[in-house]
Design a binder for these strands. Structure first.
Lengths: 202, 202, 202, 202
DNA sequence: AATGAATGAGCATTCATTCAT
DNA sequence: TATGAATGAATGCTCATTCAT
């Protein structure tokens, strides 16, 4: 009983800290955020943060890890029912922009705070990001095997191009003060990625 | 004579500070860099930094501004002799990757430190980055008028896709500890951007 | 219990800081005193000072405010049982010199540090000093109503003369390295203030 | 010729520095004034200040010394033609307030900056202030010998009372933002000092 | 004498983290 | 578990003073 309650409370508190942290990091940036701000917003004492996280940095890590693994597992699930590789990539692009739209603060933390440190990026890369790129690459290579995609293209590079294009959409959206819908841009990106910009020479 | 000497010395010192700062920022990140580190590496006293820059932040700004305006003016010049729009985009892509290859520390500052703060990104965006995207967009629109590029594509979005793809190449290159040549990737990006990934359905 | 302890500790620490500060300010002057000195003398960490005071300046303020309100309330109480106005002024003069004698460091802070800045003086004037002058003036005006004191004298000016004379005694005492008793000078001041220096022309 | 010119220039420059310093010290306080501000206001280079003064502190000293010796010699001269001791004291009081009225900035430096440091006060006391008190005391003692003033009063204490009363007038005038004439207060002070505040018991 | 660029010691304040309760 | 008072290391910036020219 007690354990259950504690776990629940503990879980709630951990959750509360992560939620506060996303808001605080998003609005002030990682380095300008104080642990006290996070604790305050979560309505717990400063010291309590350290019962759930080893350090301020670990909070940031946890945000990335949790969001990323959620995203990847959800992504994989969504892709299961899709057989055509181009449809898969389309779904990934849509999900990517949807997810980012859905939680602007989280998006800011991903686009901005995560990028601000080589260390973070490296750690994050090996943790979750690499998997994400792999997901894209797998779909791409499958498409090549299906003769849907050109065989003269390097799948690793293509997956990065794909990701880079989407990523730039998100970054611009964040900086633009959010006046437009992000998701429709998936189609724009896919038009170019799939068909290229050259006009058909008839 | 005296004036020249002073200018030179002044210029030299300012230059030295910027050079040190690029190195220091690249290796430790902006927030973890101490002004004393920058001064030390530049072999001047701490206080001297403040004869040339108002604050630590202004140093970062100056790095961006100088590099960006250099890059843009050089870019424009290079493009002058080129008439075909696709060649122009090719030259831009090559230059982008060349420049980044040429000064890895500067690249890190651009790819990492600049991205770590919404404030920096916003300021930088209005300062130089917007111009760069415009350069790309102009070339793209020209291509559309020349019927070289599809008219159903949004030039603004396309320029962002183009930039985002290149940018991702650079970021990956930086994180990968530099074991490969960056410039050849321009061709890969262009293959996809121009022709798309779909195989020709014959 | 806990609360009591906390209050005590908190109170003790605040108290300790103020005590240290009086000593440190007295010996080095406000501007030459380091917060670290104050903390050190109070045997607490530097940062702890800021749990009790917003800034170094606020410490100085608190010293003034506390001492002044203590002094005034004590003064008022002492005067309550006295009906003759000249006795009241005598008591004020005695108290003034007694109090200053009793804590030489505090006296230095009042005579020296407080005077060293127009800003401090203005703030202090409106805070507590004005009240003190009023106390004197009230006694004086009462004396005028009692026909004890001349009616052709401006009470405001007279209260300043009274204060100025005492104040000068204190300042001289502080500068003189403390070889004589301060309190007996009250009588000297009163002799002049009450009777003037002119010999009786008989 | 050259020497004369230089001396003149030198003198002028020294003078200019002292003038600037009085203004700057008066408006910002000694500790908050920068040598660069003084130099700037005097329209000379920062370093030039050090050709005329050994340190910032010496500038303050020079201000005191010069003003004080000027004041004392002028005071002595003025008193020469006066034979009655009470007239002498009256003249001193008037001169004191006149002089202070005449240069408000200088008055601020004397009333405020000079008082802010025991060190300054001690040094100044032995330098010029002691002489000033002596001037007053001499007049007072003379008055006692002339049987004009009571013999039961301590001349040293009386001279301090006299000075303290005047000094308080000046301090209040400075703090009050200068809306009234200072000089007429000499008469008020003298009325009390000479005749006391007691009403004549008839 | 004059300049003003350069120096570098000095310091108030912040804040992640700890720990006694 | 939870608290929040206490810690103390860490640092951007200032400014009196120097000195090469």
């Amino acid at each position: 009983m007690t354990r259950t309650t504690n776990q629940k409370n503990g879980g709630d508190k951990r959750e509360a800290i992560l939620k506060s942290a996303v808001k605080v990091f998003a609005s002030k940036g990682y380095f300008n955020s104080k642990v006290a701000d996070i604790a305050g917003k979560a309505k717990i004492a400063d010291g309590t943060v350290y019962l759930y996280f080893k350090s301020k940095e670990e909070i940031l890590h946890s945000i990335f890890d949790r969001a990323m693994s959620e995203f990847i597992s959800e992504g994989k699930q969504e892709l299961e029912g899709i057989s055509e590789s181009d449809k898969k990539l389309r779904r990934i692009a849509e999900l990517h922009l949807e997810k980012m739209s859905a939680d602007r603060n989280l998006a800011i933390v991903f686009q901005v705070q995560l990028r601000g440190s080589i260390k973070f990026m490296r750690e994050f890369s090996s943790a979750g990001f690499a998997q994400y790129l792999e997901l894209i690459r797998d779909a791409f290579e499958e498409g090549q095997r299906q003769k849907l995609f050109r065989k003269d293209l390097n799948p690793v590079v293509c997956s990065k191009i794909f990701f880079g294009a989407l990523d730039e959409m998100v970054t611009n959206w964040i900086l633009s003060k959010n006046k437009y819908e992000l998701k429709p841009l998936a189609d724009e990106v896919l038009k170019v990625f799939f068909g290229g910009v050259f006009a058909n020479e008839t």
